[in-house]
Amino acid sequence: MRLTGGVVTNAELVSDLGEASARGELFAVFQPQFDLANGSIVAAEALCRWRHPKHGIVPPDTFIPLAEATGAIGAIGRFMLDQGLRAVVAWRRLGLPIGVSVNVSPVQLSTEDLVDHLGERIEAHSLPAGALTVELTESRPLDDFADIADRLRRVRALGIGVALDDFGAGHASPEHLEQLPVTEVKLDKSIVQSGTDATWRELAERLRGARARDLTVVAEGIETPSHLRRARDLLCDRAQGFLLGRPLERASFDALLAR
């Protein structure tokens, strides 16, 4: 693979990734999520970035799979959880009741201590559990579905929201909406950006269960006015994407909120 600093191998990245958090190379960015009814920012998705000292910014699509494969995803997940919750505390001090969502890998969810850790960190930051949503990706089949569903029910029992990410990417199903304690469905950007009329009709049918359960439906990947119109046509509740707001580091995101 080739990054900004030249050619680099997976082995080199794996070696460096283990110490990236301790060296302060990982950082969080926040992408705003907008209410389509009134245009206000109602939440932010916390996203991890890696600024490698030699190779520059390493794309998440490159280092997250490596982190999952090597077990480093646990440390990254804990780092991102605290970054997200600290941001929410700061926003609430300003009188802004904005929630935050953090991505949780099925690999993380398979560990016994994740649920307890989520509860402990919410309590440590003195936040209501509803200020946090965990996003479970559906871009690949879920192994050990029964165990994952059980742990998500425990997460939901704490009051934390549960979002089904990448819905429509090929593996999510209406049955998952019934079997998982989901509070939010995030449409995969491929649906919003390049779906056909037939795709949208099928998606509307798949979302019928979500509507019946009063779940929040979020459109991702809004990059053009036509994407935004499509999200409205699909009756989405919220939207996020470059057209509306790019991922920003905390200082820039705070400035956006101030405006």
Rank of each mutant, 00 (worst) to 15 (best):
K54V: 10
V8G: 11
E184C: 12
V218R: 12
D113F: 09
R153C: 06
K189S: 09
S21G: 04
P97I: 04
S252Q: 07
E249Y: 01
A198G: 03
L118V: 02
D61Y: 06
T133I: 07
R140C: 08
D143P: 00
S173Q: 03
L234W: 12
A72H: 13
L234K: 10
I57T: 10
A28P: 03
E19D: 12
R206A: 15
R49K: 07
A69R: 14
T62L: 13
L207T: 07
A46P: 03
I64D: 09
C48E: 00
L243Y: 09
L152W: 13
P128T: 09
R49P: 04
L203C: 14
L164Q: 02
S21L: 05
I73Y: 12
L257P: 00
H176K: 01
L109G: 04
E205Q: 09
G18S: 10
S226T: 15
T196W: 09
L142P: 06
C48R: 01
V7F: 15
I64Q: 07
G168T: 02
T216C: 13
L85A: 10
G18K: 08
P225Q: 09
T9Q: 12
G159Q: 05
L187H: 12
E19H: 13
L244N: 09
P128G: 12
L180E: 08
R92V: 03
V182R: 10
A37P: 00
A231H: 15
A231P: 15
A204L: 15
R23M: 06
L177S: 07
G161A: 03
V218L: 15
H55R: 09
V100R: 01
I191M: 14
A43G: 11
R153G: 14
L17H: 03
H55Q: 08
I98F: 01
P97G: 06
L26I: 12
F145A: 14
T199W: 06
D116G: 13
P181T: 01
A172I: 07
V185D: 08
D165K: 04
S110F: 04
T137C: 01
M1D: 09
E112I: 13
R154P: 12
L180F: 15
G74P: 00
A210C: 15
R246P: 04
S15H: 11
F167S: 02
E220L: 11
L234A: 10
